[in-house]
Amino acid sequence: MSQPAIDVRGITKSFDGKVVVNNLSLTVERGEIYGFLGPNGSGKTTFIRMLCGLLRPDSGSGQCLGMDVIHDAVNIKKHVGYMAQRFSLYGDLSVRENLDFTARIYGVANRKDAVAGMIERMSLAPYADQLAQSLSGGWKQRLALAASLIHGPELLLLDEPTAGVDPKARRDFWDEIHELAGQGLTALISTHYMDEAERCHRLAYIAYGDLLAKGTVDEVVAARGLATWEVAGPGLYELANRIKALPGVEQVAHFGKTLHVSGPDPEKLKTSLEPLMNGPQSYRVTPTSLEEVFISMMNQSSAAGQR
């Protein structure tokens, strides 16, 4: 059981000559919740689809739950729960019927009980007999998650499972995922939310097909080596424009009544900001957040992406 749940190397995929996933290697341990982040169009969906056998990689190899990703896709499917980015259950079936269908396909034992249990667990009871197409976006997501869990998978591949879901439901969702992980389930989850990224044990960041960073949140933040200052006080709007032009400043972002200024070189940033510090605003060093790290990487990769 010490074998990782996902262990792939050199996975590459291109569409019409455009490389979408480039030589990607990833290891996800069993019981781990792995965050998968990256800007729009960076290849997250494509990579996840390759893991569950929806797309065939152009090259690369590896195993998933101890089975070969390329040749044993059929068996992998039995133990994987996948939730597509776009709602892909049957809109003209009710919630219960959708779950029942999925359970049948996977040959779930005690199907009736499993479906009833899942409806209970996901609080879907009030909607059980409603057609899936008439559910609100967030409830559709929940139904999709329920469907991906019904056969008791060992690995969950969730593609933006919480897009458009309210904060309370998201919290519930993550609690659920952590509980499942405690029982040994592995989850690879793509998301655009920073707070969700921070809830993952480890995460990977990909941009335009390339893996740019991986590790725990702290590791990823530390590896980037950004310095961040928080500025509070009056006249932040004008100040922000002035700061943006200074050398060593990479990003300036408004956070309510404060401004976060960050740059790759702490010394250089400090030198640039020092002349402003006798103004009416207060300055202090603050820990760099994941968001700043990601924006920084995104800026860099999109600059590189222009080649």
């Binding site: 056998g53 929806l54 039995k78 597509a84 776009r86 049957y90 469907a147």
Partner: peptide, 9 residues
């Protein structure tokens, strides 16, 4: 819905 179906065995 094919995306979901293709992911099943």
């Amino acid at each position: 819905t094919m995306e979901n179906l293709l992911c099943t065995p």
